[in-house]
Design a protein around this nucleic acid. Structure first.
Length: 140
DNA sequence: GCCAACGTTGGC
DNA sequence: GCCAACGTTGGC
């Protein structure tokens, strides 16, 4: 199962917004970047991803689960843009800050560090485990 | 709020 | 098809 990272500004759509929607989750709509769209097309149901607060917060706050594969974005006029659906799975015991990620040599290749503008990103298995470890997340 | 980095657009 | 101009994102 693959891992991803979703970025959102908490003022616009934060972790609390997503948790409020419960099991039904939400479309990850509004993405207007081809690279991000192509990444979403690779996602499978059951994949998990980090939820990152950009601009204010600057930290990974929770884990989301992909509950629908890529489909047309309902907020786009033409059929050009697509999105997946996600639901909140679990809040991290401790948020993992961008500073922590940047200062950890093992995470120097994370897209979050290398291409901070990309709003949907792949996360490697190794990166996933390291971030969970930093978050104090106990394996279940 | 500033601005660097990046992506997109459009004139040539 | 190049590249300057423009718009947007997101860290600072």
């Amino acid at each position: 199962m693959a891992h991803w990272l979703f970025k959102s500004e908490p003022d616009v759509f934060g972790w609390d917004h997503l948790t409020a929607l419960g099991q039904a989750g939400s479309e990850w709509d509004g993405v207007r970047n081809y690279q991000a769209r192509n990444i979403m097309r690779q996602m499978a149901i059951g994949d998990t991803g980090f939820f990152y607060h950009s601009r204010t917060g600057l930290e990974i706050v929770g884990i989301v689960e992909v509950i629908a594969t890529a489909h047309p974005d309902s907020t786009a006029q033409d059929g050009k843009w697509e999105c997946v659906d996600v639901r909140a799975l679990k809040r991290l015991p401790r948020p993992v800050t961008l500073d922590q990620i940047k200062s950890d040599d093992r995470l120097s290749d994370m897209v979050l560090v290398k291409n901070s503008r990309l709003s949907v990103q792949p996360v490697s298995d190794a990166e996933w485990q390291i971030v969970l470890e930093l978050a104090g997340h106990s394996p279940d």
